[in-house]
Computed example of a mutant assay.
Amino acid sequence: MREVAAAASVSVGTVSNVLNAPDKVAPATVARVQAAIDQLGFVRNDAARQLKAGRSRSVGLVVLDIGNPFFTDIARAAERRAGEHNLTVLLGTSDDDGDRERAYIDAFDEQRVFGLLVSPVGEDLARLNALRDRDTPVVLVDRDGSGTAFDSVAVDDVAGARLAVQHLCAIGRRRIAFVGGPATLRQIRDRRQGAAAAVAETPGAQLEIIDTSAPSVLDGRAAGERLRDRRPEDRPDAVFCANDLLAMGVLQALTLMGEVQVPRDIALVGYDDIDFARSAVVPLTSVRQPTAEIGATAVDLLVEAAEGRPGEPKHVVFQPELIVRDSTAG
């Protein structure tokens, strides 16, 4: 910075203002300092600046599965909003593994991140509490944090699942299967609860639970193969999957041999409304979550907390929307 100041004939303090608060500096001076920076190839030492400030300009984001387009879309939205706050996003994926989640949290803590956005694997939030106690703001993403000390952004998954199964019942389906797992994930449990509630309020409706080890395409395909191999009279007439990846796998398995037609024989609904849902061989009815709003709102809450917003934690809960396509409306 001293070399830049000498080249631009300004003080070191002016160079600092150009880098950190350019609105305090005359435009002509900003241009002169920037020209010196470009000429000298100056790169700010963020580690040193971080030591001085006690906090970096990076936000840690830990999601359950970056291979799921739902979380990819949230990360993209968070990155865009972080940029508007002059922040960058560091991304980690826990793969639904608590140990891996803790390793990422520890790594981001060592980096003195500005704050942490996390979709927790389980219910143990002790590590996050320790972070908050050291004045590192934490926002829970895709998890309602009511009853905790953390801000949170979530979608009402119970309501979303009810929408899906109420739709299946409204088109005359009564033998409904719920495909999803593992039950350790709160999102899976909430969606199963919503499906059960919709079945309970529909006379003659039945709900079969088909557990999976992961909410993936391969697990959905395995579940679909088991359904396809049953006698026609023993199959459900509708399937609600806990996410679109499972639903895509079920759809592949059911239609592969041409023995089962969707939706004539089995109506199918997914959850998340990822881009692949609308472009499937049978366009998929799905429950849409507002991923752009989730990612952006999470960053906004993090910035507010870092700036010392008073009062109780904020819990933002979005309402989902059912998008009807050919997999139920053919």
Rank of each mutant, 00 (worst) to 15 (best):
E101A: 04
K24L: 11
Q166E: 15
V165C: 08
A280D: 01
A159E: 11
S56N: 00
A223R: 04
A48L: 15
H315T: 14
R173W: 06
I209Y: 02
P27E: 13
L128S: 11
V141Q: 07
E101W: 05
G160I: 10
T14W: 09
T202K: 01
A305E: 10
D142K: 10
Q252S: 13
G83C: 05
N45C: 11
F178H: 13
R162P: 03
V269F: 10
M257Y: 12
S94I: 09
P290E: 09
N20H: 15
E307D: 14
D135G: 05
A31L: 11
A164P: 10
E79C: 05
Q193E: 15
T328I: 03
D106S: 13
F276V: 10
P27D: 12
A298I: 02
T212G: 07
Q39L: 08
Q193R: 14
V155T: 12
I294F: 07
L268E: 08
R186K: 11
F42M: 00
I266P: 03
V287P: 01
A48K: 15
D151W: 10
R278N: 02
A28K: 13
F150D: 03
D265I: 04
V25C: 01
A107C: 05
L87K: 10
D133V: 13
V324E: 01
F276E: 13
V287E: 03
G295M: 09
S213C: 11
G115C: 05
G311S: 06
S94H: 08
V158F: 09
L218Q: 14
L64P: 07
R143C: 03
A329E: 09
A198L: 06
D73L: 12
E110D: 15
D275L: 05
L140N: 04
D272R: 00
F71K: 00
A159N: 04
A200D: 14
D99Q: 02
V165L: 02
D97G: 02
D95M: 08
V12S: 07
D96V: 09
V25P: 00
I105L: 15
V217E: 02
P120H: 01
G67C: 07
T88G: 12
A195H: 04
V139K: 00
V260C: 00
D151R: 09
E208P: 02
D23E: 15
D326E: 14
V25W: 09
R189S: 08
V89Y: 01
R288H: 11
A35L: 04
L61C: 06
I188W: 02
A164F: 12
A6V: 13
P290W: 06
V269I: 14
V43D: 02
G220M: 00
A164M: 03
Y271A: 10
I74D: 00
Q261P: 03
R186S: 08
R32C: 05
